[in-house]
């Protein structure tokens, strides 16, 4: 099965990797986008992802059912989100710090649980890649070029991409979306119009955390099918950065996630193809290009006006 390394093979490889690698960034990034749109900065995404990754993995490990893993990850995400919401919204804590606290807590607890409940790295059978078998001899995967790029992913990857238009719809076309934006832009005005800012913020923070949990699960039961301590390795922070990249818009987050992960795939190919670039320089490419892309002179939206500002009802 010697395969000629044609240009097409490389392009397919890069794009396919880029799409797959974007999965966790999309879940976590879209979740964080909702948080920030409502005015809450959650820097603890990485910690929530780790908790989601562990619980998702553990559920699959115990039951063998990958969907139970998703449920477990979302559930633990909700719990972590509730904690963040209580601290940051009800207790009006400084959001930059509370997020770092949540991150440390999630990092520590997920590793501890791993140590006591598993103790060693093992594999599970999580979600596998769908090939879209249409008839006996034809699957969408067989379509040249397009097939191997787009029709060879796990259901969680498709879910992540599907979430982009859904998020855009929720944010722009529903009353709830309107309330979220109002809570983040001008909570006082929203309040005077009868929007319960606190409730809206609670809901979005919990939603964002549930998605972050899912992001972790997409690593541990779909992309990698293992759990290891600190396996996100700071992905959650990148996801937060991608929200800024995407100017708080779902399609912007999508663009950021795809750019970052595709360039990452590109640099891996560059190494494999023995291009004369030191590995360290290759590794820093996605980070560098993300900054450069953002420095391009496009019109950008301003951040939600009330981001990180707590809201107290009835004052003044």
């Amino acid at each position: 099965m010697t395969q000629e390394l044609t240009f097409a093979v490389i392009i397919i490889g890069i794009l396919h990797s880029g799409i797959r690698l974007a999965t966790p960034y999309l879940y976590a990034g879209l979740g964080e986008m909702f948080d920030q749109r409502a005015g809450v900065l959650n820097l603890g995404v990485d910690g929530i992802m780790l908790m989601g990754a562990f619980f998702g993995f553990y559920a699959v490990y115990q039951t063998g059912n990958a969907w139970l893993g998703v449920a477990a990850a979302v559930l633990v995400g909700i719990v972590m989100g509730l904690l963040m919401a209580v601290v940051s919204i009800s207790f009006q804590a400084e959001q930059g710090i509370s997020g770092i606290g949540l991150y440390m807590f999630g990092l520590g607890l997920s590793s501890l649980l791993f140590k006591t409940m598993l103790g060693t790295v093992e594999g599970v059978q999580g979600f596998s890649e769908l090939k879209f078998q249409i008839t006996q001899n034809f699957s969408l995967y067989d379509i040249p070029i397009i097939g191997p790029i787009f029709f060879n992913h796990s259901v969680l990857t498709y879910g992540a991409f599907l979430l982009v238009p859904i998020s855009a719809y929720v944010l722009n076309k529903t009353t709830w979306g309107l309330k979220i934006k109002a809570a983040g832009q001008n909570p006082e005005a929203a309040d005077s119009l009868g929007v319960n800012v606190t409730t809206v913020r609670y809901m979005t923070v919990i939603l964002g955390a549930a998605l972050a949990g899912l992001a972790g699960a997409s690593l541990s039961i779909s992309l990698l099918n293992i759990f290891q301590e600190n396996m996100t390795n700071g992905m959650g922070f990148i996801a937060v950065a991608l929200v800024y990249f995407g100017s708080w818009r779902p399609y912007g987050v999508l663009a950021g996630a795809l750019l970052f992960s595709t360039v990452n795939a590109l640099q891996l190919w560059a190494q494999v193809l023995n291009l004369p670039i030191p590995s360290d320089v290759a590794v820093m490419l996605p980070y560098l290009l993300t900054i450069i892309a953002l420095a391009m002179p496009f019109r950008r939206a301003a951040q939600p006006a009330a981001l990180t500002r707590p809201f107290t009802r009835g004052d003044n």
Partner: peptide, 26 residues
């Protein structure tokens, strides 16, 4: 074909590197 992730603990990048290697025929 040799690729380095630039990191000791980046599990997902290592996974992607493996994917890339396999796509490249390894």
């Amino acid at each position: 074909n040799i690729s380095f992730t630039g990191n000791f603990g980046d599990t997902s990048l290592a996974a992607e590197a493996a994917n890339t290697q396999i796509s490249a025929g390894a």
